[in-house]
Design a protein around this nucleic acid. Sequence first.
DNA 1: GCGACAG
DNA 2: ATCTTGTCGC
Length: 224
Amino acid sequence: MPHAWPDDEAEALRIQDALRPLVDTVGPGPRAPRTVAGVDVAYGADRPDGSTPVAAAVVVLDTVTLRPVATATAVGSTTFPYRPGLFAFRELPTVITALRSLHHTPDLLLCDGQGLAHPRRFGLACHLGVLTGLPTAGVAKNAFVGTFSGLGTERGEWAPLLDGTEVVGRALRTRSGVKPVFVSVGHAIDLATASRHVLALAPGYRLPETTRLADRLCRQVLRG
DNA sequence: GCGACAG
DNA sequence: ATCTTGTCGC
């Protein structure tokens, strides 16, 4: 029942409304995860029939060595169009397929996109968390909702992402002098803990190693 | 009404 | 997301 994929926008909105109450925004989640997985999707050129080729990748990293210990991929196609706010319905079906073939359960899942920093507080990371039951967090390259101010320039500094008076996430500086990433809770973890893990996973580049490796892998799969 | 809008 | 090499700057 919960694993239904919508055919239209109205149905997608109803599914988000039904699943949103299932999100655990308290956590606290894994304090010292042994493994963290990155999830990403790549798209090919639209086909004549209107569908789009999709490749999903999951890369599990050892948090100490930051080296991959397991990977999983899946290929498929989407007919659901890209709509800000309904992003998950375009990506998750293929992601779920990839996760089913992953014979390793990571302590945390990091998604490319938002969690609670979403107009209806149910971004991609929340959706994936509810469907899998695993702790998840969103790491986005751009803010979707919310604003921040007074963010310091040094690595490790952060500012709350506010939507009105509500804290929906954090702008986190992973590299000094470089645009921050936007972290938000997905499921079964708290914001501070998620942010701490994201920073630790991004010792050298703006994006955490999890998403960098997942990004590289899904693009590679899309070709081969 | 107009523009903005995760990937 | 994707189309895409070299290049300007610290």
